[in-house]
């Protein structure tokens, strides 16, 4: 079994938050320490949101670069994801190209509220065209009205059938809507991070099934053990299904092959032992 965390933030921007995150993941070492003690083999890792002030990086250029440096040093632990602001148009596309060609990133994180665009708005289309070209999964922050309700992902999932979309946080209080979207669109996956309750996870398992539910923690804003516990506590969840949720499905979406998996596991176990 491989444990893939679908939602990890890391980088210097974290030190700059007005409200400090629960855990510390400003450096690679701090993040690996959390991975190791929580049994996370690999993390889909991207920048936190940028609040300005002492660390100004509106275009995410320095933040993406930081993720690249980490993934280069620890290719077995970090899968680099790109972050851009779709409103910046060509700059965002250029940054995506750099992340693909120079950095070898393998996914994209978008935050409609933070970057201010309607999840299904016009500025996101060129970004998704590019993500489709790169074969990247796209993880959206979801759950806040009026920009990031999960229903807005439905037209996108239908327009981009080759892209796998992850709706983060089980869309917070809009879990019921997220379930409708995932039932209809097989390329939509619901991700468990944030304040998702065990009950919300159970609702998703009952309605959508384990195949479209993926574990993500949103560390360092949350405690990954806490999220894993909510999954472990699910009644009547088979070991196979649990393995899918904790990493099997993400490994498939990212094309982590069996060899990669065993390498990762060996590396992780070596670190843990």
């Amino acid at each position: 079994m491989i444990v893939v965390d679908a939602h990890v933030h890391m980088g210097p921007g974290l030190a700059n938050h007005a409200a400090p995150p629960l855990l510390k993941a400003e450096t690679v070492e701090q993040t690996l320490e959390i991975f190791d003690r929580s049994g996370i083999d690999v993390g889909c890792t991207f920048a936190p949101l940028i609040e300005g002030g002492d660390f100004e990086d509106y275009e995410y250029e320095r933040s993406n670069r930081f993720i690249y440096d980490a993934a280069k040093r620890h290719a077995d632990r970090f899968i680099g994801y790109c972050r851009v602001n779709p409103n910046l148009g060509q700059q965002a596309l250029d940054e995506m190209r750099r992340c693909k060609e120079e950095y070898g990133f393998r996914g994209l994180k978008l935050h409609p509220d933070w970057e201010y665009f309607y999840l299904n708005g016009p500025t996101v289309r060129p970004i998704l065209d590019r993500a489709a070209e790169y074969g990247w999964p796209v993880i959206f922050h979801t759950g806040y009205y009026p920009l990031s309700q999960p229903t807005l992902a439905m037209p996108l999932a239908e327009a981009y059938p080759t892209i796998n979309f992850l709706l983060a946080h089980l869309s917070y209080r809009h879990t019921a809507d997220a379930i409708v979207v995932a039932e209809r669109c097989k390329n939509v996956y619901l991700e468990t991070s944030g304040n998702a309750t065990a009950l919300a996870i159970r609702e998703v398992l009952k309605s959508v099934g384990p195949g479209q539910l993926v574990y993500g923690s949103d560390l360092p804003y949350t405690e990954p053990d806490d999220v894993m516990e909510k999954i472990a506590l699910q009644p009547e969840l088979s070991a196979d299904d649990r393995a899918l949720i904790l990493g099997g499905t993400m490994a498939r979406l990212l094309g982590l092959n069996a060899a990669t998996r065993s390498t990762v596991r060996a590396a992780a176990q070596g670190r843990l032992s």
């Binding site: 509106y58 779709p86 409103n87 910046l88 148009g89 965002a92 201010y116 665009f117 500025t123």
Partner: peptide
């Protein structure tokens, strides 16, 4: 108004 790119970028 809120600026929204990409035609008009004025962060």
């Amino acid at each position: 108004p809120a600026w929204e790119g990409p035609e008009f970028i004025d962060t």
